[in-house]
Simulated assay, not measured.
Amino acid sequence: MIEQTSRYATPETKYLPHDWQDEVNPDWQTNPSKFIHKTDAGYILKPVEGCDKEDIDFYVRELQYGDVIKFAQYRNYGEFILTIEDNGTLRTNYLLPVEGNLYRVDGDDDRSAGSLDELVSKHDLEPGTHTIDVFWEGPSTSWSFVIEGETAKFVIHWHALYSDGGEGEPWMAYVEGHHDLFALAPTAEKEICDAFGNGSITEILDAAGGAALAHLWLKQTGEFDGQPILDLAEANEDGAFAVTGVRFE
């Protein structure tokens, strides 16, 4: 049994280009656009901090309008105190985040687990107090590089799906991961139309009741002409991944 007391503050999500992940990384940032740097020749993707000068060239790449970059993401909920009673009761000094999926003892990556119960049993934690930190590690998500006026930025990348293995009618549009529906809604219709590159998608959206966004799960069920065929799935199915999207029905 876990007894919990005071609440935690929800931290900001931080991002890092997926291909940069290693045992030692450049510093993560609160917005993917912070990795964009303007040069005399255009724009590049470049670390902000946390990288030795001699290593920067390893990470730098040119950016062209429409480039899609995958970014890893995480939230650090910080440290809390875990007390293990002699009878096995676990007590923490704040409520554990529901989305927490990485727990560590004393910041040690070698003593980590996906849940608090697993951490205690896997590493045979003894009765007493322990310092634990907890993170949420989300799936990597795709972002598109765009230039609007004088502003260069990354925007969440929308995927366009067609029925019949890509040969039929527009079926669904989605972004990877579960996002705040209210944050996506204001620009969703324009971005969905851009993803399909088809003005008539507006009529299909209207028939579907507008850009009615929802949290869904997809999984690959096959392949056609080198492209994956995706279908709706349940959260607990093997291969299922979270998306936020709209279905055209």
Rank of each mutant, 00 (worst) to 15 (best):
K14W: 10
Q220E: 14
L45S: 03
E191A: 12
Q21T: 07
H157C: 04
D124S: 13
L96N: 06
T141K: 03
G78Q: 06
L119K: 06
D27L: 11
F224N: 13
N101G: 05
I69T: 13
H157E: 13
G88E: 07
D225M: 10
E167R: 09
D124N: 12
Y74K: 15
I192E: 00
S33H: 09
Q227E: 13
Q220R: 12
G209T: 08
W143I: 03
P170M: 08
I204Q: 06
W171Q: 06
K46H: 07
G78C: 04
Y15T: 03
F135D: 05
W20V: 01
L213D: 07
E223K: 05
E137G: 00
G88S: 11
I69V: 15
R7T: 10
Q73C: 14
Y65S: 10
P186F: 03
A211S: 15
G149F: 08
T30M: 02
W28I: 02
G107Q: 11
A173W: 02
Y94R: 15
P11D: 12
R247D: 01
S33E: 08
E249P: 15
E148Q: 13
D40G: 08
F224D: 04
N31W: 09
I229S: 00
T151C: 08
V24H: 03
I2S: 07
G245N: 06
L90C: 11
A240E: 07
K53G: 09
N31G: 05
G166H: 03
E137V: 07
L184C: 06
L45W: 05
G88T: 04
T13E: 14
L116R: 03
S121C: 03
E249R: 06
A208P: 10
P186E: 02
I204Y: 14
D55T: 00
G209R: 13
L125P: 04
G107V: 13
G128A: 10
V120R: 09
C193N: 04
V146G: 01
T244G: 13
A152K: 02
G128Y: 08
Y103H: 10
F145W: 12
W143H: 15
E167C: 01
V134P: 01
K34I: 03
A214I: 00
G100L: 09
L95H: 10
Y65L: 14
L205R: 02
G88V: 04
F196Q: 01
